[in-house]
């Protein structure tokens, strides 16, 4: 009788342990294999991701050249960005607004590092000048694409500057 009690107790202890361990080990994040496999098949390497409501923007590297690429996550298709990539420039940071209408990016061209806004519907580029001299490094956008936070190098230190675009 007593040994049965211990067997029952061990059984329920094991069940409890399995439930607890199962809960701890369950991964809350499910890989999106279809999209991830599509990226791998392009034979490019990707870095600096920025995710919008249904967009992924990243820097794609192929044969030593970096360029900005945008994907529709649902269809897994690349979205054209006419005029954003230049043969003489290297992008180093990119961010997309929630609706995918605007991209902010930092790029190096010859000895200059510059900050730009790209309006996708118009296909236009606007250079954003920092009000205080500095070298931009990283950029992030809010949902509207009208507020930017920029990491800037000034006199040997990193600052973060908030910029609002009027229009």
């Amino acid at each position: 009788m007593k040994s049965n009690f211990y067997v029952d107790q061990s059984y329920w202890y094991c069940i409890f342990l399995l439930i607890v361990l199962g809960g701890c080990m369950s991964n809350p994040m499910r890989p999106m294999h279809g999209f991830n496999d599509a990226l791998v098949q392009t034979s490019k390497t990707y870095r600096e991701p920025s995710v919008g409501n249904k967009w992924l923007v990243a820097l794609a590297s192929y044969q030593g050249k970096d360029q900005i690429e945008m994907f529709d996550v649902r269809t897994r298709k690349r979205v054209p960005l006419p005029g954003i990539n230049r043969a003489d420039s290297q992008p180093i940071s990119v961010s997309v607004s929630a609706d995918g209408a605007r991209l902010a990016f930092v790029q190096q061209r010859s000895d200059r590092t510059e900050l730009f806004i790209y309006r996708r519907k118009l296909g236009t580029l606007q250079r954003i000048d920092l009000t205080q001299k500095g070298i931009p490094r990283r950029v992030t956008l809010d949902s509207s694409g009208k507020v930017l936070a920029v990491q800037v190098s000034r006199q040997g230190r990193w600052d973060v500057e908030i910029i609002r675009l009027q229009g």
């Binding site: 956008l141 920029v150 990491q151 230190r157 990193w158 500057e161 609002r164």
Partner: peptide, 25 residues
């Protein structure tokens, strides 16, 4: 193409990196 306004610069801490805005700004 619109004006640019700097609304905040430097948060009083040395070496601030990797900024990320919430979508609501």
């Amino acid at each position: 193409m619109g004006r640019v306004e700097r609304i905040q610069a430097s948060f009083g801490t040395r070496n601030q990196q990797d900024p990320a805005l919430s979508a609501n700004g």
